[in-house]
Design a protein around this nucleic acid. Sequence first.
RNA 1: GCCGGAGUGGCGGAACUGGUAGACGCAGGGGACUCAAAAUCCCCCGAGGCCUAGCCUCACGAGGGUUCGAAUCCCUCCUCCGGCACCA
Length: 817
Amino acid sequence: MADYNPGSIEPKWQRIWDEKRSFAAPDLPDGRGFYCLEMLPYPSGRIHMGHVRNYSIGDVVARFKKMRGLQVMHPMGWDSFGMPAENAAIQRGLHPREWTESNIVDMRTQLKKMGFAYDWSREIASHRPDYYRWNQWLFIRMFERGLAYRSLRLVNWCPQCATVLANEQVEQGACWRCGTPVVQKSLDQWFFRISRYADELLADLDRMPGWPEKVLTMQRNWIGRSEGAFVDFRIAEQPEADPIRVFTTRIDTIFGATFLALAPGHPVVRSLLEASEGRAAAEAFIAAERAVPVGERLSAEREKTGVTTGRHAVNPFTGEKIPIWIANFVLMEYGTGAIMGVPGHDERDAEFAGRYGLPSVPVIDAEGRTIDSGRFSGLPCERARGVMTQWANDNGFGEASVQFRLKDWGISRQRYWGTPIPMIHCAGCGIVPVPDADLPVLLPDDVSITGAGGSPLESSPSFANTTCPKCSSPARRDTDTMDTFVDSSWYFYRYLDPRNDKAPFRPEVARGWFPIDLYIGGITHAILHLMYARFFSMVMRDIGLGTPGEPVANLLTQGMVLKGGTAMSKSRGNVVAPDEMIEKYGADVTRLFVLFAAPPERDLEWSESGIDGLHRFARRAWRLLDAHAPAIVDAPAPSGSGEMRRRTHQTLARVTDDIDRRLHLNTAISAIMELVNAIYLFAPPEEPIASRSAEDRAALKEALETLTICLGPFAPHMAEEAWSMLGGGAHRGLLVDHRWPEADARLLTLEEVTIVVQVNGKVRGRVEVPQGAAETLVMEAVRRNERLASMVFAGESVRVVKTVFVPDKLLNVVVAP
RNA sequence: GCCGGAGUGGCGGAACUGGUAGACGCAGGGGACUCAAAAUCCCCCGAGGCCUAGCCUCACGAGGGUUCGAAUCCCUCCUCCGGCACCA
């Protein structure tokens, strides 16, 4: 008799799994592979409860699939480039590399203490040259295909972080990291042409049943496809100049256009204003707009203001001259930066027109047909759009067009702790990629990291100064680094071939393991990371790396771990440290709690009494196993069909289905709890089992073994210890290598079943009948039941209208007075 | 505003394909063991009512509908959470 002591059994089994390389995955699966992936952590220093939850969910699935006989790929690594390392360097004078490496050591130790079944031989870390070298290699391949390009662009600039932010990193006009309002700045930047894949990224979403609807919707919104048309408006005062092109989704309302509006940054503005008396006022307006931070500029609440140019556009459909305005609500970033204003059918245009006294002309009637639209009058809107677009096309002043909200991905960062962009700027040759043979371009060490603006790499002469690979004359390296989202966009391929120094990975391993069977991570990555990961997979496919277009077959977005209703965070002081929980309860109980307290996709409220409950359960299960194991080690296989056996197989069936099909890990655990309760009643630990019948002992052995197997994925250490006790010692194989059994279907059904009897749909009683009994037999039983019979067969007063019979479950008798 | 998700006991949550609403756990109550306590084990635990060994009525955000039967399907509405949002 030994108390449940996780402090001793957990390290013991962790060591044994490690020594036996229990979780090593083959480079290539033999056709029965399962890739179970969890989002890799940033090595901030400590594992938090969110990690524990995320990785516990994945670990249950990985261990279960392995026991099911699949070859499981379950790797772990580090998303180890990023700003916190630089901040630590500034604050503590540590080199980002030292800080990062030491955090990795600490966090790896913590993960190992949780007993996660990772193949640690595949561990990767994105800050190491053998990883980021392939970021550079991929960048150059993308450059060669026009997928990486340089462009001077107004960018989102965070004054606090002194860096450029992608649109995706701007949240309500503020920096996603520090919350500082973002401003506009014009900078030469590298971009990835994700827009080239917009159609594919969108279309695939309709064929991804393994992703949550929520995420699919978020991605659809983000891509923001809209169908419409370009229409060219000539400038009345400058008939020889290029016309102004607008984008509209409502060409059917063009007869109601009463003005044309340009974004303040539209390139035509300059020539338009030449010799215009409104020039001074217009330029003042444009200058004022430029000073407005991006976030404020894009806010829908902002008042719509503008200024007239004094020029006019000619509506190609009507020949009418309409005034050209510059308006703050027209965005250069979307469409053509120019719109036609239709106050009659667009709220924003109406607001603007109202302010400046521009007319409003309705051109759609109540039935949704065009009116006062010349030869196009009387058509339903939808049809009018097609006809009018065609007409514009035929006459050379327009064409159908599809616009996307999705912008190309700006990846240049003026930071130190990231992948150096492998490009060289030569005065004679222009922009030249670093030859593959010279990769990786290493991050230099002679850099002072101050946190001031600009790229830290510029402060390293040894880095910045180089020679042109083409002409050998002195040249300068690009001193920006890549957005760290690049690192995490393809890491899951590198796990498959982590030490390959010839290529990012071999195409055959990607083909063999992909797509990822289950990817688990936070909903916070629903857009950014998961969109980029899809994009990269498509790009790598097109480069010929053997990747599928869609890398992830099934996605699980797990909820947050809350305390007191809010996310755990240092600033709120409501953080529960996983270490302390392991110390106090052990890894198994910690795992059980985070899995039991809520279904995986929902938020989970941390509760001290809740974890106590799971601790109680673990000890309870342990007492049973510990008390009975010696007496039933040699028990034979059971042959009967008693209640204990039925409960055992029922539990096995439920747990199997809950993990395999439903991913309802909380109900799987509750099923195991029910089995423990049932075994307690069948064979309390304090009553010796030796005096019971052989069949009882056999049934108990089966129950305890099944309990142990079911506990395996959830509380693996305790289960492994119990497994060795039930096998009479360590000489039987490990539980992690044991085959997960099938429930015996014959034992799942009862000989006698309880049929619910309803009268007019209300439950009125129950009758016992043999399993599979026909309706007539059930009716007989009802007739024998005094109470039910009085309701159903009360002579003249009631009449049975019909019956509804569900075999082995329910009989509904419909009666009328 | 548009799009998604969700509303079930004191609490976390079950109820999968329309078929006994509240599994399992927490909190609470009672009992057993104990000199006592802790630990442990067993039982009770939605609300109201009555002719109180039992039975009835109500109850799954609100209201309607479909159905023999609805937490589950349909319609309308309310609330909360999340995403997008001057995107033409």
